[in-house]
Design a protein around this nucleic acid. Sequence first.
DNA 1: TATTGTTATACTCTATAACTATA
DNA 2: TATAGTTATAGAGTATAACAATA
Lengths: 167, 167
Amino acid sequence: MSIIVSGYHLTMTEASGAEESRTTERAGRAALDGDLSFLLARATARSMAEGNAALAPLGLRARSYAVLALATDAVPPTQREIAEYLRLDPSQVVATVDELEQAALVSRETAPADRRANVIVATDSGREVLRRARVLLDASERVLHAQLSDAERESLTRLLGKTAFDP
Amino acid sequence: MSIIVSGYHLTMTEASGAEESRTTERAGRAALDGDLSFLLARATARSMAEGNAALAPLGLRARSYAVLALATDAVPPTQREIAEYLRLDPSQVVATVDELEQAALVSRETAPADRRANVIVATDSGREVLRRARVLLDASERVLHAQLSDAERESLTRLLGKTAFDP
DNA sequence: TATTGTTATACTCTATAACTATA
DNA sequence: TATAGTTATAGAGTATAACAATA
């Protein structure tokens, strides 16, 4: 099952900007407005749309950004570990790493301890692109979550951190 | 772009139950653990997986549940309004309403004010199924968010409510 | 002329199975 | 015999365009 779920299904053209009757819609259709699952899905959809739009200038999408970020880990992950962490199918990791490798942002290195496994390591160029990606994402998130104070945003992050992973 | 995004992409078989090395994974791969977008995506993926599993006995999925819920609104929505609220393509609303109508949970009624539009109204049977769905989802969410206290869960819902919609 | 719902279809993403190379 | 990565492909979901009915 994929975590970086809707990244490829987003209509980028409506990622930013107001839509006509948002407030009307919201006021009129309250059946789901207190539904935690629905709010999660809706907030994620917004986040994913804005995130992909923000990353587009760098040629990244949410998924490749996530893989690139993991590849900067002090103990770089194998493809299998990436698949498990992002809940992607291993074959999808192949495709994403291919893409990043062709852009010279990561490299595959045979794991010393197990020559079947590839360890994915960010290149210097990859680290630089990641830094720029984080700047773009930070700005995007500030707009996205403009209704929240800094404290609220931190609180949201903390609460999600407690519930995003299996116990 | 779809809100009820990953509902159909989830591997239901691993929706519940522990996975071997979760804690190891989490401890070892911290590059994204404070990333609000990632946490949102991951929490949503868990929520969607558990939600779909919980709704399966009723023959519902996250998307049909959402449409059914909207159809109980005091001022029932048109298909176009459902599409906008859930950010679904109108043609996907057609398919979902078809499914719900065949199960006699909603009915299409020509909108009095505009005979082009269908208003989607939940049947008595639909309202009863929705009640049962909510019971199942409540139980599912309690397990899903077991790491959160009641106050924290309410807080999470409140914060998401502020950021799930465009300003 | 524009919009609602509908249909058909192209497109994209996901999941499965088979293969190789290591273990 | 089991596992990491790869490939090809089947399956599922999404998006687009064209249509009839109505505004």
